[in-house]
């Protein structure tokens, strides 16, 4: 088994896979990659199963030493990566020679960059997944973000290096988009008509106080017509909840499993990967679609990700 030496960890780098689903009854949220499409594609570039664990870097990447070499791919946002001083492209398989050093900097596009390595990052699974949940210290590498000096294990790499890249059509599909599409939330009609209009007409800015649990938004306040008295209930991924202050919060991968604030809307599944790439300061708008449209957009997305021409060799 070969290893990765963490020379610098970056701002917030965690081990993530596609998360653990099915443990809501004991209060465990799914976690997993904030931009699961980037992780899935990165894994495919290095001949891993889509669900293999990789590193999720946030806003500022780290520096990693591969003493025994590796086959890797970087996906998601552009963090200005170099390998032994020479820049390398996103969305391409890369062969790292023994002793190679991968260095990432500050983001030039979205919030998160994924490092996928052939063999995957090996950690002790918690409830079937290697994903890290920072708040509770569960899963991933010691339940925390990486630190300088950490040593990560890579699963055995059995496939030889092949040059692979992602089709331009897919990359175009993944390019940033200001509009998040939503379906109505379960308490949508608790909000006055004018509040709902304001919610859809307004532009929101992602606050600095955003993380994998939720993205706090700044902008038009939304007020409830029927205030208070909400009974705590289950929360779906991407729910847009509105606490008493009126500023919406998009609940995300490390979200609480239940909560007591009304939800005006819910980001559609096909747009959740975009939420994972939103940085503090980014502007977004909400657009309402029907459940049927949301479903067909998800089906379309999965078709695209399953298409034969996705990976170019």
């Amino acid at each position: 088994m070969s290893i990765i030496h963490v020379k610098t960890p970056g701002l917030l780098t965690t081990v993530q896979d596609l998360g653990r689903e099915g443990f809501g009854p004991i209060g465990v949220s799914p976690s997993g990659a904030a931009d699961p499409i980037s992780l899935r594609l990165g894994n495919r570039l290095v001949a891993n199963a889509e669900s293999a664990a990789g590193l999720e870097m946030t806003l500022l990447g780290g520096t990693f030493l591969f003493l025994e070499g590796a086959i890797l791919a970087l996906t998601g946002s552009d963090f200005g990566a170099t390998l032994d001083g020479a820049s390398i492209d996103l969305w391409k398989s890369v062969h790292v020679q023994p002793g190679g050093t991968l260095r990432l900097g500050a983001t030039r596009s979205g919030a998160r960059c994924y490092l996928c390595v052939q063999g995957g990052i090996v950690v002790t699974p918690f409830l079937g997944s290697g994903s890290t949940q920072i708040l509770t210290g569960l899963g991933g590498f010691e339940g925390r973000s990486l630190r300088k000096g950490d040593v990560l294990h890579i699963g055995s790499a059995t496939r030889s290096f092949r040059k692979k890249t992602i089709s331009p059509q897919v990359l175009k599909y993944l390019s940033p988009h200001k509009v998040l599409r939503v379906t109505p939330g379960p308490q949508m009609d608790w909000f006055s008509e004018s509040s709902r209009r304001a919610f859809y007409a307004g532009t929101y800015r992602v606050s600095e106080q955003s993380n994998r649990m939720g993205l706090r938004l700044k902008g038009t306040r939304v007020s409830q017509s029927a205030g208070g008295g909400m009974i705590t209930e289950g929360i779906s991924l991407g729910a847009v909840q509105v606490p008493p202050g009126g500023l919406p919060i998009i609940l995300f991968v490390d979200q609480p499993t239940t909560g007591g604030y009304p939800k005006i809307a819910n980001v559609i599944s096909a747009d959740l990967h975009r939420v994972g790439q939103l940085r503090p300061g980014d502007e977004i708008q909400f657009e309402q679609v029907t459940l049927e449209i949301a479903r067909s957009l998800l089906i379309e997305q999965e078709k695209l990700l399953a298409s034969a021409g996705l990976i170019l060799e």
Partner: peptide, 9 residues
């Protein structure tokens, strides 16, 4: 009550 495109309350 649908809560999202992949959930039902």
């Amino acid at each position: 009550q649908p809560a999202s495109d992949q959930s039902l309350l």
